[in-house]
Design a protein around this nucleic acid. Structure first.
Lengths: 190, 190
DNA sequence: CAGTTATTTCAGTAATTACTGAAATTACCG
DNA sequence: CGGTAATTTCAGTAATTACTGAAATAACTG
């Protein structure tokens, strides 16, 4: 943790502290931050020294980050050690994060909801619960679809979409107008 | 936890277990699930009985859910107790969740990044770290803008947007065509 | 304002999660 | 193979977080 520039230290410490809010622990957050800022890939020993945590803790942290697909291991010729790095492209990182969170936070609930909604409710209480679950399921499916679509579309479309910012309503307005136009032209093409 | 229909029980238990992935604890997840499915608002005592946890634990859980703005307290005339419920509209709930998560997961990091990026980097290492932070900051700002925009737009626009699903590229394509048209007509109105 | 009920706070404890160091395993090398 | 370096595993422990019950506080009521 020493011998790092203060601004880099702060970033690493911050990621450690934010770990709680992000569902990862301190060390995992710090490892990620260190690798994210590092110019070249680092081996486990270097990470251990930089962060001042145990070698085994680093090993477990790296495993978790690899499970998240946020860190990958590279190899250097003539060196038996693993070197770790984060993907270069910030957009890759964001998409990975989005997909992994969908998998962990949405999918299990969606599965449960779909199963539960197979049965017809009987009592009034059940009917109400059933309809609440249906609303939740519907929304989660839409969010899940969006997430999947973002993974699919071209990088340039993705960047365009992100840059939209406050111009979203204007875009939707265009959509309306266009679909009216195309309806007139060729009888309703949603 | 007894005297609830199995499908309701499962939902509550699932929310409890998912708590870990969502950054809340088991009890808080269970309280939310119970209130979400409940036909009418419940008081703390009823929640205590339904879930089989201590009264004080329920009190703390409700406090946390209120801090998240996911649960509100209502009052019944001629009854001194607080009754708790979740907002009816699933879209309200989703927007609240989105905003609270932005506040907790994005804003603090954004603040740190902006501060750090005020200083000019000197060494090569620092320069690289600085540029990485800049990329992260830029993306986070775009995501944050989107999140804010979603809060602002009309409910019908929001629903339209959510329903888009796999038609996103088509929409962006329209945007392109339109902006070309308007450029031709009145010399560039980005 | 004395009595009653509802709610919150908080110190102590239970449960869970994170971390370490030692031992085991894996991967490579001559 | 036997030797060595790198990595992982895991039992034990430390640290953190969640939960409880008792006591304090707050909110009403006659």
């Amino acid at each position: 943790m020493n011998d790092l520039h203060p601004s880099i230290q702060n970033f690493i410490l911050h990621f450690g502290e934010m770990g709680g809010n992000w569902g990862i622990n301190r060390t995992v957050g710090q490892i990620y931050a260190l690798l994210y800022l590092s110019e070249e890939p680092l081996n486990a020993e270097q990470i251990t020294e930089s962060l001042g945590v145990s070698r085994s803790n680093v090993s477990m942290g790296l495993k978790e980050l690899q499970a998240w697909r946020l860190v990958r291991s590279n190899h250097v010729i003539g060196d038996r050690r693993d070197y770790f790095s984060t993907p270069e492209d910030i957009m890759d990182i964001a998409l990975t994060l989005l997909e992994e969170r969908r998998k962990r936070e949405l999918d299990p609930t969606l599965t449960l909801l779909r199963q539960t909604l197979m049965d017809k409710p009987t009592s009034a209480t059940e009917k109400h619960a059933h309809s609440r679950m249906k609303e939740m399921c519907g929304l989660m499916e839409q969010v899940s679809d969006w997430s999947n679509e973002l993974q699919r579309i071209s990088r340039s479309d993705l960047e365009m979409l992100l840059k939209l910012g406050s111009r979203i309503p204007r875009l939707l307005d265009m959509k309306d107008k266009l679909s009216i136009v195309s309806k007139k032209k060729n009888k309703g093409s949603t």
